[in-house]
């Protein structure tokens, strides 16, 4: 079992993607298929960007065991007001600044869900928890 934890600062666009890049390298080191590594990277990057744009900051934790590659994104608020709306493609509350960086089109959460094997999203004003999982063995998604 391998666990790695990363701290993430809100609005830090300079570092945005560096955690996903590291997780992608770890996925490669586990001998995953190219297609699966890409799914891990895309889902992780979308979630990392979401945290940078929308949250007050938080932590990302990678857990790897024999069967699962799991990533947990946990922030300290302000939470997602309407989870159902947030899952609709095109719905967004992103700022103009975020959109000028090429994001905030309302595609993040739907695209994450499309790329993962398990998806769990919980939110309150105190924070949001997103847990995504990838089966290490066998075909998935």
């Amino acid at each position: 079992m391998m666990i790695k934890t990363y701290d993430l600062e809100a609005n830090d666009f300079t570092a945005a993607g560096s955690i996903s890049s590291d997780i992608k390298k770890i996925a490669k080191s586990y001998g995953m298929s190219v297609e699966m590594i890409r799914r891990v990277a895309v889902a992780c990057y979308e979630a990392e960007i979401n945290m940078i744009i929308h949250s007050h900051g938080g932590q990302i934790q990678l857990n790897v065991d024999d069967d699962w590659f799991t990533i947990v994104f946990r922030d300290t608020g302000p939470g997602i007001e309407d989870l159902e709306l947030a899952m609709q493609p095109g719905w967004t509350t992103a700022s103009v600044d975020a959109q000028s960086m090429g994001f905030g089109a309302g595609m993040g959460l739907p695209n994450i869900k499309k790329n993962v094997d398990t998806f769990e999203l919980l939110s309150s004003p105190k924070g949001t928890l997103l847990r995504i999982g990838f089966r290490q063995k066998g075909e998935s998604v």
Partner: peptide, 15 residues
């Protein structure tokens, strides 16, 4: 036309 780190990161994630 997006000449920033996020264009680079996006390409990186997509291989």
């Amino acid at each position: 036309g997006l000449a920033n780190g996020q264009a680079l990161r996006t390409a990186e994630m997509m291989d």
